[in-house]
Design a protein around this nucleic acid. Structure first.
Lengths: 246, 246
DNA sequence: CGCTCCCTTGACGACTTTCAATGATCGTGG
DNA sequence: CCACGATCATTGAAAGTCGTCAAGGGAGCG
């Protein structure tokens, strides 16, 4: 089990650039109101920056941030890259239950002092900041409650997505989730990078990857969506969103 | 761990009995460690009991606790009864995104000072305690973080349920969710009351109510499950749980 | 007693999964 | 730099499941 070595973390390690992601994109998020240090002020913000944000640790594509069942002693703040959260079932099946993009805090679903309920795997080269549980004071906790509320709200939206019967609606809702997320982070909502495979998308949505491929081809043929390698472009967002409402 | 004394709860706000639910069943939950006041001590526990637990409010079946979009100024602690959470879509469709049973805190997904993202409707006669947001101090907030983590963890499990393709697996997972929840509250995991209609179950699971009915009939014919009106009995829990892993 | 809402069952059709095979892409190592 | 292997994406055809539409029966409530 690859336990990451904190000692190797350089205090001045600056995140490099993941392919296709500019530094402006990755750096912007941590100053957004929705991100963790937003409500910290003066001294505590300074302390937070020194103790947490400087300690970015890199993860290569496919590497594991934390294994399901591992002891948990820190949250992680995702600065660059992306992760998938997977649950391993007793019969060996693996299910993707979430994707994380820059600006996310990883580990909110794990009660303090407990274990990771899921495995988090990097989908591409990824940089994270470690937030030791011991460093969480009341100011940070106040912020955490907000973040968790937001995440819970998201999960309810995902529930809606999954409850859709048609594959086209599921996929449309999935893309709108991602698009909205990128917009909230100040990135483009019309054209974005998909770091995950169709197999992972299919697992996330309760479909088969063949169905994902077929449905996307249909959407492309109807002109509502353009596939360009790992990038997705949506010419008309309003029109596309109507797909989620049948 | 400080325990709540039921005698300190106002006698005149004593919960009545929902149909088919004994008082032993409904009252047990608030003594469980997982419930809100578990980690409060001394003065704050006393304050909590006086300011919150005494203010139980009744709700009749079908009545609405809070409307989607309404301003939110309190959380609610569910003591007796059950609720469904629904999201109304722009096109008029209504989706059930959750059920709540005694011991739950309602409103965790709403950022403070914000609005209700969902509508909560009583499925039967229900009693709730109001927890004004203004009364949430750091001690309570610490407790909230735990509850929200737990809820997030649950939502990931629901994701798994919804991602199952077969209706039988979805329903089996749904019943195991409920069964596990009742066991955690000290109630029977083998035989329990279903306060919601098949239509609501179907909406929650992304199925049609006809499919729910058919699948349940099949499960009953195979002897894995017994329907008795609004009650569900599962003779062999281990065997039944295997259904969720195909 | 009437009504309304819920549950059940049947037959048909549409959609997704399944199985299979081929092609594309990427990372690795020679 | 190229070749190789592995993973991923695409497409076809067949089979199965679930949704849809329709109708009848039952339970609860005013």
């Amino acid at each position: 089990m690859p336990q990451l070595n904190i000692d190797t973390v350089s205090p001045h390690s600056r995140p490099g650039l993941a392919r296709g992601v500019s530094h402006a994109e990755c750096g912007a998020c941590i100053f957004k109101p929705r991100c963790l240090p937003a409500e910290l002020d003066g001294e505590s913000l300074d302390h937070f920056q020194r103790s947490v944000l400087r300690q970015a640790r890199p993860l290569k594509a496919g590497q594991v941030l934390a294994h399901q069942g591992d002891n948990m002693d820190a949250l992680y703040f995702l600065r660059v890259g992306s992760l998938k959260g997977v649950i391993n079932e007793a019969n060996g099946d693996e299910h993707v239950v979430g994707f994380r993009f820059p600006g996310s805090v990883i580990g909110l679903a794990e009660p303090e002092e407990q274990r990771w309920a899921r495995t988090f795997v990097a989908l591409e080269d990824t940089w994270l900041c470690r937030i030791p549980l011991a460093s969480i004071d009341d100011a940070l906790r106040r912020q955490l409650v907000k973040l968790m509320s937001e995440r819970l709200r998201q999960e309810y939206a995902y529930h809606l997505t999954l409850a859709f019967k048609s594959g086209a609606r599921k996929l449309a809702a999935f893309f709108m989730e991602i698009s909205d997320g990128f917009r909230a982070r100040g990135l483009s909502a019309q054209r974005f990078h998909l770091p995950m495979s169709y197999i992972e998308v299919a697992s996330y949505l309760g479909m088969r990857h063949e169905s994902v491929s077929r449905t996307l081809t249909q959407l492309q043929d109807s002109g509502l969506l353009v596939k360009q390698g790992k990038f997705i472009q949506i010419p008309d967002l309003d029109q596309f969103r109507q797909l989620t409402q049948e």
